[in-house]
Design a protein around this nucleic acid. Sequence first.
DNA 1: CCGAGTAGTTCTATTTTGTAGAACTACTAC
DNA 2: GTAGTAGTTCTACAAAATAGAACTACTCGG
Lengths: 117, 117
Amino acid sequence: MPKRKFLGEFEQVVLLAVAQMRGAGYGTALRRDIRERCGRSATIGAIYATLERLEAKGFVTSREGESTGERGGRSRRYFSLSESGTDALRRSRDMLDSMWDGLDLDAPADSEGLEVA
Amino acid sequence: MPKRKFLGEFEQVVLLAVAQMRGAGYGTALRRDIRERCGRSATIGAIYATLERLEAKGFVTSREGESTGERGGRSRRYFSLSESGTDALRRSRDMLDSMWDGLDLDAPADSEGLEVA
DNA sequence: CCGAGTAGTTCTATTTTGTAGAACTACTAC
DNA sequence: GTAGTAGTTCTACAAAATAGAACTACTCGG
């Protein structure tokens, strides 16, 4: 029973990166993707902590990749988006859309002008 | 010096409500607006705590409304979006847009199909 | 095989956000 | 002045975000 019914901000970003990579995303690559896509630098610890939470909530699944024998280093852990992760993304987008709906940020900040007109 | 350069998820929602109400928003009304717009119920404490934080970061400003003499109760505290609040909203939107860019949630979750094709 | 190098993941600790609801304030109406 | 009403503040705690050091598991050269 998660107390929070909505995705946190960073959770949303990480989940989107997982979705974009279509099952081929793993910690370090997701981090790179996020940095390149939106200029947001996150430490690797932040990425994994978020991934853990998303997995605990059932929004992503992970599997160990086998060693390719083509490079040094530990084997990768790949993440994919689950059904409910997909739903969560859709819900987040819809909620934000409805909050943005009809909003014009270039208009003056206060309602004064509107009332006088 | 804020450590976090991005808006939290709920901060974003509250800031959007403030923007929508164009300077005429106050605690209770913002709460109602959020509930109606996106079905997200938040306690009044959550709203005010977030509003305080947004004000501390300079994203909103507040002013006391004078009593209208038309109703009982304490006077309202109105919130408006500041310049940097406007910027923060734009940045959040842009970042999320770039993460969503080109993503199709209806496609299969894994890349298998793509590689075989 | 053994050390060095590399790619990647876990762990530990702390700050910032998010959540909840009870308590309080200031007003109006009777 | 007591009750009712609209609104805000306070207190306490849970969850998410952040940071970076430590660790793991592999490859390669000798």
